[in-house]
Design a binder for these strands. Structure first.
Lengths: 275, 275
DNA sequence: CCCACCCATACCGCAGGGGTATCAATGAGA
DNA sequence: TCTCATTGATACCCCTGCGGTATGGGTGGG
């Protein structure tokens, strides 16, 4: 199976429409129809149920969609990591904007002091984006936060575990308390994070993209949020953090794709484990 | 990047010889040379240092070799799983021959009683082969044994944890002891298991491929081995198992590729977790 | 009943992948 | 030092197969 065929199939399966898929792929519709037919013939499996009104996935088609996406990511990753390796040594670390700042700084300092350390390009992004970057080769290692982030398919090492606090504007009724329980927080409209598909769940809270943005909303008095204790780091004084004693504990882990434990990534991971 | 190009590159990188690689691929040498040149041009990266006497990998080439192998496995997996999904529902479970027999039987019984259970094709193979099968799509779930098997890149659920015993022929000097420590076992030549590449490490013990084979060698008085306690199950009476109290504990886990948690696999995993 | 929509078919042109023949560079051995 | 075997690159040709345009045919909505 060629990646071209896979890309074509994934486009049609996602659009559920040959015309739109062809447009997205930048080709005409007839060659796309033919390519899918040929793929079906080669696999000996019907992938799509087509009527003139709708295109639906068969069981086999659904399997090929998920497996094919993973395969295309792997191919993209191979290409990206090779390109990066060609321009010179160096690794890309991705972390959530505004999270684990202190830990990240310590890690980078410690690694830089290591003999044979290479350049570390730090990328900051919103949650749920990290997994994607690690999977398609735009990043080599990530700092993830269990149980929020999925570590599925990656190797990981635990770094720190911490409790969570409610971050809220000074003056908020709950800000005077010395500690809280989840039940106390139930009435507070919590911010809504993007779903893996980029949309937002329904609810009363504000839509936020990253922790920096959230922090600003909190200090403006327009949001309150339960976050790991370490978000207290660098807090401005008009925001108060009150520990939520029964909130799930958050573990910061360092994650990397299991097959690509390069020298540099291994060094960085070893370094992180010593912190 | 097309899978054809990747297959070509991996062949050359593994053979370190264009002629042999071409032969392996079933094409002539000139088109292979051209394809690699074209790949290098498209990636903007030199992948191989070639002289007339030897072909060596560059840094970028080494990256593409490992990443490319993973990507090709993912593509093969997509194709195989789609083909299987097309012939009908059903999943392939792979376990080590002669290991976790009781657990496996219970699991299969429990799952078969589940509503909506599909056929489970059980494959038995030697250790280190399972990972490969799971990775290239010939299997959907596996029973692995930590810390012997690597679970890198898979999702897992722990099933059971047990100690290990020394299995040895009745009449062996150590067979009278009621328990042992690792130090007692140090002098016993242990069997050698295949390495991931199919070869065997050097040493005094016999070469074995799977637990069944080992069991037979033990009962013939030609081997002794430290194995999980559950290997005691179905033991013939001329073999004695003596607990090794300080041997590392073995955890049997059920593992599956994280992206392909199909209905059937999810059911099986849930079923396993309840055992 | 007609029309709009949408996938499939027919047919054509050409890019590019594969084959054979041959060259060029390099290192081993006489 | 000269020769020769080895090995990757180049030259050139053929033909497969991918993509394009034009068009057909089936289906649901108005």
């Amino acid at each position: 199976m060629e990646t071209r065929e896979l890309r074509y199939f994934v486009a049609v399966a996602e659009e559920r429409h040959f015309g739109r898929a062809a447009e997205r792929l930048g080709i005409a519709q007839p060659p796309l129809s033919r390519a899918i037919q040929q793929l079906e013939r080669r696999l000996g499996a019907r992938l799509l149920d087509r009527t003139t009104r709708e295109v639906a996935l068969t069981e086999a088609g659904a399997v090929l969609l998920t497996e094919g996406r993973a395969a295309l990511d792997a191919v993209d990753a191979a290409e990206r990591r090779t390109r990066r390796a060609a321009v010179g040594p160096g690794i890309v670390l991705v972390s959530k904007a505004g999270a684990s700042e202190e830990l990240l700084a310590k890690l980078l300092d410690a690694y830089a002091a290591e003999p044979g350390a290479v350049e570390v390009d730090v990328q900051l992004c919103g949650p749920a984006q990290q997994e994607r970057l690690l999977r398609d080769g735009r990043a080599d290692v990530a700092l993830l936060h269990c149980p929020f982030d999925s570590t599925a398919g990656f190797d990981t090492d635990d770094l720190t575990t911490e409790g969570q606090s409610l971050f809220l504007p000074a003056g908020h009724p709950l800000s005077a308390r010395s500690e809280l329980r989840m039940a106390d927080v139930a009435g507070v409209p919590l911010p809504r994070w993007p779903l893996p598909d980029g949309g937002y769940p329904d609810g009363p809270g504000p839509e936020v993209r990253d922790t920096m943005q959230l922090r600003q909303l909190v200090s403006l008095g327009r949001a309150a949020a339960v976050l790991p204790d370490s978000a207290r780091h660098g807090l401005v004084d008009d925001v108060v953090a009150v520990p939520v004693v029964d909130a799930p504990r958050v573990t910061t882990v360092i994650a990397w794709p299991p097959h690509s434990r390069s020298r540099a990534v291994a060094d960085l991971v070893r370094c992180a484990a010593r912190l």
